[in-house]
Write a protein that binds this DNA or RNA. Structure first.
Lengths: 201, 201
DNA sequence: CCTACCGATCGGTAGG
DNA sequence: CCTACCGATCGGTAGG
């Protein structure tokens, strides 16, 4: 229940509480426009006191981004390793992605759209782990192209970039409280990715 | 040739020159982290002097966003109005989009990813015109579903969000100097959108 | 387009 | 986790 806005009296201000507040604020208004004072108000301490729990604003963002993307890798890697056909893998990978997204919409927004504000060193780490995430989809597509299950577009990485584009944008329009469940949403995306828009002749 | 970084001596600092510099800086590093001092250095005047040409930072961003998205509407609207089949319209619309993107990658990056930093009033204007852009694709898809050319996903707006997601992400990975021309890129995207990944049986 | 400047806010720290 | 504070930078303005 990290949703509360004001500090819970008597509950210690932990690093985790600061992280949760930061996820919400960064996600809603963007990392650069959130000041340490906004953050300290949200958790109910004074600005300088934040530094008893975190080492810097940049470090806080890196933490959010790394744990955010790791959650996706943790659920998609098993799908890639499973004994499934390429199109089944793609289906399950997208379902797994949407499942994690539903659990952490706000963190995913920060993870996918705010890492550009990391300092050079933190940014390098974020890019590396993000690459691992993308590689999972590259593997699935390569398998599919090799087996003949997927069309060979002639562009090695482009299909992955498009799928990542869809999933990344889903972060902006998916609403956990909306009419469609994560499962329905995932199936609609899978159909678009695998079958395309056109009616089969 | 708005690519130069240092001020061209003797050339007047026009509003257009400031806009071009802003597009580059906002696109590379993000609107909130660019100061008016960065901007004034880029065009070769002192910070306060910028206000002889623009009324505010927010107004400058709004200008960039509105002209940026208008460029897309201007080329896609004729496609929607043309006498073409839905899949041909989709193909031509995506081609037209990529054509504009190729001409103004940096401005498109700002247009699609930084409008969230606009103040409330400017933001409302940006959302409105962005809606017009999305509606063009909604029209094409509705036509296609009505004629039976496209699958009916059961989700009215979702296909558009996915296509917009792909095109929006293209802004991040498309490089005008890259191997693939805008035309090739567009065709690969069209195939993905219309046919999907799966090999026809 | 410059000079000279405004009040506000920034991330972060020393020393408890 | 507070007190008290640092130097730097922010968007913007008055009056030429």
């Amino acid at each position: 229940m990290p949703e509360q806005k004001s500090p819970a009296k008597g509950e210690a201000v932990s690093r985790a509480r600061i992280r949760d507040a930061a996820i919400r604020l960064f996600g809603e208004r963007g990392y650069p426009v959130i000041g340490m004072r906004d953050l300290s108000e949200a958790v109910g301490i004074l600005p300088g006191s934040l530094y008893a729990h975190i080492s810097s604003k940049d470090d806080l963002l890196l933490d959010i981004v790394v744990t955010g993307i790791t959650a996706f890798i943790d659920v998609i890697q098993p799908v890639v390793d499973a004994d499934l056909s390429p199109d089944q893998k793609m289906r399950e990978a997208i379902r797994a992605h949407l499942g994690v997204l539903a659990q952490q919409v706000e963190q995913t927004r920060v993870t996918f759209h705010q890492w550009q504000y990391l300092g050079p060193e933190s940014r390098a780490k974020a890019v590396e782990i993000r690459q691992k995430y993308e590689d999972l989809f590259v593997q699935i597509i390569d398998e599919g192209v090799a087996s003949g299950a997927f069309r060979d577009s002639g562009h090695h990485r482009l299909p992955v970039l498009m799928i990542a584009g869809i999933l990344g944008s889903a972060t902006e329009w998916y609403r956990p409280e909306g009419r469609d469940s994560a499962e329905e949403m995932a199936d609609a995306i899978v159909d678009q990715v695998l079958l395309g828009l056109q009616q089969a002749a």
